[in-house]
């Protein structure tokens, strides 16, 4: 990208990110309508009423955005959504770690999976620094969570090998 085009892009408002919610809302509303077409009126009335207003609002927003693009006041870029650029990779990895945490908690149980997630996420966000502190915190926090939620409150958190091992004790 040339220096001029970079400067031009900085001057223009990036509205690509602003369109994500309205477009997702539009797709969802149309999907919603498709599920109630043959339903009784009680299932339709409020959805059609609210959905129609939402579509009108989205249409107005899209028209406003298109006018800004035509007048060259705005660009289609997604800068607002991914700023600051230096954090994009870290954020994406945290997102993957979070999904992995949810996916693995069923087998690993609360304590072990929380420990793994906390430790890796702290290392990731800390840029690999403070290894010992991250280890200490993740061990102590997951153990406190285990004692508070599972032992004290008897909450039915997902259980795994650690909880099974500790069961005879508590």
């Amino acid at each position: 990208m040339t220096g001029d085009s970079m400067a031009e892009r900085r001057e223009k408002k990036s509205i690509g990110g602003d369109l994500v919610i309205p477009v997702a809302a539009l797709v969802f509303t149309l999907y919603y309508f498709s599920t109630i077409l043959d339903s009784p009126w009680t299932a339709q009335v409020s959805a059609f009423f609210v959905g129609a207003i939402l579509i009108a609002l989205i249409a107005a927003f899209l028209v406003k955005s298109a006018r800004q693009i035509i007048r060259k006041e705005a660009s289609w870029h997604f800068d607002t959504l991914v700023s600051p650029p230096g954090l994009v990779l870290r954020r994406l990895l945290l997102l993957v770690l979070t999904l992995a945490y949810i996916a693995l908690i069923e087998w690993g149980g609360f304590t072990l999976t929380s420990f793994g997630f906390l430790f890796l996420a702290m290392l990731l966000l800390g840029g690999g620094r403070n290894f010992r502190l991250a280890l200490l915190l993740s061990v102590s926090l997951s153990l406190v969570g285990y004692l508070l939620f599972i032992v004290a409150f008897e909450t039915r958190f997902p259980v795994g090998p650690f909880e099974a091992l500790m069961k005879p004790l508590f």
Binding site: L94, T98, Y101, F110, M122, L125, N130, L137, F149
Partner: peptide, 14 residues
């Protein structure tokens, strides 16, 4: 936030 963010995610998701 290095320590706060993972803590928020783990404990609130559970």
């Amino acid at each position: 936030t290095t320590y706060m963010a993972p803590l928020i995610i783990a404990f609130t998701l559970v």
